Amino acid sequence: MKKHVILLSFLILFGCSEENTESQIEKKESIPLVTWVNPIETIQKKYYPALGLINTVGAGNINWSTSGTIEEILVKEGDEVAKGQKMASLECEMQILDRSNSILLLRQAELALDDADKNYERAKKISETGSISQEQLEKLEMAVSQAVLNYESAEIALNLRNMQVEDCDIVAPFDLNVEFVFSRLGNDVAIGMPALKILPLKGMRMEVMLAPHVAKEIQIGNTLVDENENIWRLSHKSGSSDMTTGAMNTLWEATEESNPENGIWVTTSIDMGDVQGYIVPLASIVQLQGPGVYLINDQDEIKWIPVDILVENDNDALVEGLTSSQRIVLRRPGNLRDGQKIRTGE
């Protein structure tokens, strides 16, 4: 009888142990297994692809950069014009008046900042004697911060007014010949309307329309390479964008003698300079509210965070928003969610 009881107890214990082991295995298998990588810090060249229209012996148009009434036309058809020479302009009294007001406001903001600085410095010295409270000193410090913000805002406003005044004039971006004058004195024009048809006196030119955020990043002297490996240098860009498309017109000069076909479109790659970021495999990018990656914390739990993709190719992406010490999910089984526990595999 005792033997039967012992045997039965052993079977029960063995069965429970087996069930617990199976339960642990099942629980472990329910936690997804992922592989991970560390982002690699690097500095790379950033390029922007664009289409360009080449004009070698052909002509191109120079467009108005703002709207208004034509006040001056200083050239006629057949004139040779030197780079930097003003060729036409709009009535600009309002823009000039706005700029004068902005200059005055900047001067006032500069004086207010100077006064705020002096008041704060005097109060700091007085506070050493205990004649002024810490609260009063903090208020004066806040007044300095506000004065700095006001000065910076006035400076930005003046820069904008300067651009608006500059946009009233059409200036030769390079040595050229005037082929046709579209405009007449007293005409009202809108932004983007053609003003002059021009012919470069020498060399070649390429016209490229760019998105505003790209055009604002590049500077005169930036280079691009076309599909035939010819190098071009930026010589002119509009100060304003087209109201309908938002695109900004840029003109590029050839840096060396070549003989591309006239009036053709070519693909180009614009050198945007060096950018610092982190290389991650393209497979690790997960699109939720935009591009992002899953981070793994010390407790092997995951969280999705957004990243900015600067450059990408077939296999990797250069991104901002990470550090090289972080672990990011590379391969994952199905969908993941924030806070989910995972198992890591090297």
Rank of each mutant, 00 (worst) to 15 (best):
D98W: 06
V189G: 01
A195K: 03
G277E: 09
P212D: 09
S325D: 15
A254L: 12
E128G: 09
L11C: 13
N162M: 07
G339M: 11
A82Q: 13
V81L: 02
I305P: 08
A154K: 00
L90T: 08
I191S: 08
S127P: 04
V57A: 06
D115A: 10
K125S: 11
L149C: 00
L201C: 02
S153P: 00
L251M: 10
M204R: 15
F182L: 01
T250I: 02
W265G: 00
E91S: 10
A143C: 03
P306H: 09
K28F: 12
G273A: 13
K3G: 10
A215E: 05
L176C: 12
N162L: 03
N262C: 05
E22G: 00
N335M: 10
S240G: 06
L140T: 09
N249P: 00
N259V: 10
A283I: 11
E41G: 10
N101Y: 15
E19T: 13
L111D: 14
E135V: 14
Y278N: 04
M163Y: 02
R327D: 00
V311Y: 07
V34R: 03
S241V: 00
E93H: 10
V280K: 05
I12K: 02
S153T: 08
L336N: 06
L196K: 05
E128P: 01
